[in-house]
Design a binder for these strands. Structure first.
Lengths: 226, 226
DNA sequence: TTATTATGTTACAAAATTGTTACAAACTAA
DNA sequence: TTAGTTTGTAACAATTTTGTAACATAATAA
């Protein structure tokens, strides 16, 4: 999961929720609170998919949509429309607005995620791959398996989640706090050197002999894949 | 059941329901919300069967159907039309539109499934095979019999459904919740270690001596066939 | 250099997860 | 009905995983 998703939605709480969860899934996410600004940002951001609210303070979602469909570059940008329940569902359907899917609020994040995956699978199957790769490392999120150069590695649950986390943003340095928040279950608090020890365990698991170190320590900052 | 099914239908809730259940049955599924886009996607997706809504925002189902029947490659694509109740039933029947079957909304999923199977059985009998296989394991869904390498195994009802479930998605890791939802009858709630015990029973039944273990335990995640 | 701080490494007990067995209740077939 | 299956759950055993402390080593600053 490595695509870019743009959100145009005027409710900050929804953006907050969706953005945070999508980033956890490995997407790069950006957003705007209104239509006009959104259209501008869109071109800079070059997303693989757009989440578009139906009711916006300035333009309507439909206007934005039409605008995009006229554009040469973004004509084929997949769009998922967010609508409040009962909110002119008929209009959305009736109008040939070129929306790829729509979902009515309130929705669960998992429901949204599965639709995003479905739409992306149609437009660009590479993006929704459940296989994370980095150098000679492969992690299969469906089968829960990890390979280094053909050879399967045996990781514990936390080691697996930790590696999965790093693979979603290779090369990027994460602080211990960031790692904690993303890898450990919510409202669990571990303290002290716990993460260091888990890093050590992960290192031991993936560093088969005569293979180069893949986890870099950035002193006083954190760790990263390299 | 290994075929590909494409859906053209403008109500996401119906797509959601049908897609989810068809995938449970082992089909690969993709969809579009309108006729024009659907026709394009169709060619990329190369389905074995098409579920086509009668009322679409742009083209009518009939238009789509005619369009397909003119196509050289998809001339013989089996099509099942979905219609709202009383919605011009006569026309559909009367019209020689080249539809293979139709079903009126609302319909039960099982009703749809049996029609799909019937149509597929005519067009491509291999696809509706009721034989699930994995390595040296064979499960016959019609005769309700299981073989491991020629030798018949005797499974209890729950063991059978459990194995059937795993065979529909071999290698994939399922959580206990997912297993519960798919294998146990709806709104039944079992709790605690029930699933683990059933897994143990299934293991005992299929692990004839000197055969390798086929069910993998993924700690903190669930189980999978392997 | 030395002092200080951050990270690596090891060990271990507690906690969590899974395997296994047994058994009573529910269900089936005859 | 009765005899035989099947099912859910509890109880206990075996195993793995986890967090933390303690000590070693490396990096940095003074």
């Amino acid at each position: 999961m490595t695509g870019k998703i743009f959100i145009i939605e005027d409710e900050p709480s929804i953006i907050q929720l969706v953005q945070h969860n999508l980033e956890k899934e490995g997407f790069v996410v950006s957003s705007s609170l209104n239509g006009n600004e959104g259209l501008k940002e869109l071109k800079k951001f070059q997303p693989n998919l757009l989440l578009l609210d139906w009711m916006l303070p300035d333009l309507s979602g439909i206007d934005v949509c039409k605008n995009i469909r006229r554009d040469n570059i973004f004509r084929n940008l997949p769009i998922i429309m967010l609508t409040a329940k009962g909110e002119e569902e008929d209009k959305i359907k009736g109008l040939d607005s070129g929306v790829d899917d729509y979902i009515t609020k309130p929705f669960s994040f998992n429901e949204l995620l599965s639709r995003i995956k479905a739409v992306l699978r149609r437009s660009d199957p590479k993006i929704v791959s459940d296989l994370l790769e980095f150098e000679d490392l492969k992690l299969d999120r469906v089968e829960k398996r990890v390979f280094r150069d053909k050879q399967e590695l045996k990781l514990g649950p936390t080691e697996f989640r930790l590696l999965e986390f790093f693979l979603l943003n290779p090369k990027r340095v994460f602080s211990r706090d960031q790692i904690l928040e993303s890898v450990w279950p919510n409202n669990i608090n571990v303290e002290g050197r716990t993460i260091d020890v888990h890093i050590r365990r992960l290192r031991q698991s993936i560093n088969t002999k005569d293979k180069k170190e893949l986890i870099r320590t950035v002193r006083s900052s954190g760790y990263s894949l390299i």
